[in-house]
């Protein structure tokens, strides 16, 4: 049975390469019964989306602001 250390390692690697069928099956069996790793898996996707936003310069938190809208400089 795969442990969480190994599962998180594969879930991380899945961000770089397509996992093999065997790896995916073993992971699936693990995440079915492990909430922590299931959350970790979702967080890997969130982390990627967050990083992409960061790299697009979204860090002033106004990326949802419509263009042309005045910027409010709250303290």
């Amino acid at each position: 049975m795969m442990n969480c250390r190994r599962a998180t390692r594969l879930l991380s690697e899945a961000q770089e390469r397509k996992l093999s069928f065997k790896e995916r099956s073993a992971l699936k069996l693990h995440t079915l019964i492990c909430t922590g790793c299931r959350n970790f898996e979702k967080q890997m996707h969130s982390l990627r989306r967050i990083s992409r936003s960061f790299a697009r310069g979204a860090t002033d938190g106004d990326s949802s602001r419509r263009p042309g809208e005045k910027k409010t400089n709250k303290p």
């Binding site: 969480c4 922590g36 970790f40 989306r49 967050i50 938190g61 106004d62 990326s63």
Partner: peptide, 28 residues
């Protein structure tokens, strides 16, 4: 090789809206 109970990843509520919050980016 299993998570210690207090280290186990929790559910993240609404990660989508965090990116619109500049305080989140300071933390990041």
């Amino acid at each position: 090789g299993h998570w210690y109970a207090q280290e186990r990843p929790a559910h993240w509520a609404d990660p989508e809206s965090a990116v619109h919050d500049k305080h989140f980016w300071r933390i990041f």
